[in-house]
């Protein structure tokens, strides 16, 4: 009988996805197109934030949206109504978007006519965190009704995001959600994460978000 032997592998399980994500990032960098990966649970306000963003920035930047949410048909229609291109990825019920799906979606867009692409990832705090999409920045939305304990339950997504939007702060009053506790829990996972509380409904804090995104796009295109 053949002898059992060991082969040292020491390779990332998702090395192939990471490689393709790296290629996407390099390709977009060459073309000067900034891409943001927006992640959150369902119902926390990804579509509302995207619509606010598009309305605020569509005259200054040429924006497109890649829709990955499972009910993206509705979301894509809302975006198209704002007069900007949207590509809908049919994930067939998949729980996340990966680099090959994004590469396919990018082939549907006229990249020469774009400054910024926003990916609306599948509503889920677990799976999207594991997959690099090739975006230049990752942002996660956490809404007040979800509770300030989410970084304890889903630490990975907060550890890989550049920014956390705390949406629905108009619900803070009368709730036991503690912004300071949330801040502490997120920062220990990721000391460089930016935290922006806002309300898509009332508009409070939205200008901080727009300012952050605008600075990111401008930095990206300058460098």
């Amino acid at each position: 009988m053949a002898e059992v032997r060991l082969i040292e592998v020491r390779e990332e399980i998702l090395a192939e996805n990471r490689q393709e994500a790296g290629d996407i990032r390099a390709g977009l960098k060459r073309r000067g197109v900034f891409m943001l990966n927006l992640m959150s649970s369902p119902g926390s306000g990804k579509t509302s934030l995207i619509l606010r963003t598009v309305r605020a920035l569509k005259d200054a930047y040429r924006i497109a949206v890649i829709e990955g949410d499972i009910d993206a048909m509705v979301d894509a229609e809302k975006v198209v109504r704002e007069g900007i291109p949207a590509v809908q990825i049919r994930t067939g019920g998949a729980c996340h978007l990966d680099a090959p799906m994004i590469a396919a979606a990018l082939r549907e867009l006229d990249l020469a006519a774009l400054d910024c692409i926003i990916i609306e990832n599948v509503g889920n705090l677990v799976c999207p965190a594991e997959f690099d999409t090739g975006a230049a920045r990752r942002a996660v939305i956490l809404s007040v009704p979800e509770g300030d304990d989410k970084p304890l339950k889903y630490p990975l997504i907060f550890s890989v995001s550049d920014l956390m939007v705390v949406n629905k702060i108009d619900y803070l009053e009368g709730s036991d959600f503690n912004l300071e506790t949330l801040r502490e829990r997120a920062l220990r996972l990721n000391p460089s994460i930016r935290i922006l509380p806002l309300s898509c409904r009332t508009g409070e804090g939205v200008s901080d978000w727009i300012g952050w995104l605008q600075a990111e796009i401008d930095d990206f295109r300058r460098s």
């Binding site: 053949a2 060991l6 000391p191």
Partner: peptide, 20 residues
Amino acid sequence: SEAMTLVTGRECFVQQIEVM
């Protein structure tokens, strides 16, 4: 101190395989 940086805990890789 309460300021810290995560060092390990995000790994996801194949270490080795046993083959015949």
